[in-house]
Design a protein around this nucleic acid. Structure first.
Lengths: 134, 134
DNA sequence: CATTAGATGAAAATATTTTTCAATTACGTA
DNA sequence: TACGTAATTGAAAAATATTTTCATCTAATG
């Protein structure tokens, strides 16, 4: 996992200022995966709501953060470590997996320049399958 | 592409009524991929806003419809035909591709029961690459 | 350390989504 | 076909979520 300094460096490189608020948001993001605005706010007590929105927008636009739809409003996470999500439709649990089962070569062959991708898999987690939960 | 009757049949099978409003929403969904609430509303003049929300929620819960986050608020599309999205970060265009570059066997091996998945690829479309647009 | 473009925060304005509840309707059963 | 009933709908109101505005502040440069 790249350090936050690296991420901040990228921001600076793009001409944005490294304000305490932005650092706080990045810090908050690094605490846990796919957090909601509310959760992030809880970790950034000193940052105004408007700034939260603006900062997350900025981070998403610059590609440093991903905005996800896992079913209950937007969630955010650092883009730096590549992983995907398994969403259990029985218990609602979300877990990550590292191994990337996506091969984008066919898209590259079509002339599309691939920068990133986002994959969500829906189904039933091992626990729910074993427990027979529907 | 499966007919709407098939989709309606599934709804009925789950114990839900096939109301004119639900049919209208399904009809609207079948007109185009990844539409916003606003677009769908435009295609369902007779359906109340609340019913739109409720119907789309229901369709998503039952897996007949997918809710997507392509960057500017929720979008909806019929789940019946499997495809993925390429989002161009230069021109903002969204296009679909059919060929599925995802192999979920590794997840199955982990005990996860895979029902569906959603993949979005970000980058630059062929047009923007050729045109040198950033 | 002065300058200044960029960033922030509070309040207000909008937009979006959910709740409530009375009225209506799809559909199985008689 | 008519009936009964639980499911569904719509309108209004309430609750949430997001964006805009604008005066003030500050990070970064020289």
């Amino acid at each position: 996992m790249a350090s936050l300094e690296t991420t901040v460096g990228k921001l600076r490189g793009l001409g944005y200022k490294a304000t305490p608020q932005r650092l706080a948001v990045l810090e908050a993001l690094s605490a846990e995966q796919h957090q909601s605005m509310e959760e992030l706010r809880g970790r950034c007590p000193g940052v105004g709501l408007v700034t939260m929105y603006r900062t997350l927008d900025l981070l998403c636009e610059t590609g440093l953060v991903r905005r996800l739809d896992l079913g209950a409003g937007p969630r955010y996470e650092l883009a730096e470590d590549h992983h995907h999500h398994m969403i259990c439709e029985s218990c609602g649990g979300v877990s990550e997996f590292e191994e990337c089962p996506v091969d984008t070569r066919s898209l590259t062959n079509m002339g599309f320049e691939v920068n990133a991708h986002s994959l969500e898999v829906y189904g039933r987690c091992a626990g729910c399958v074993e427990g027979g939960r529907r």
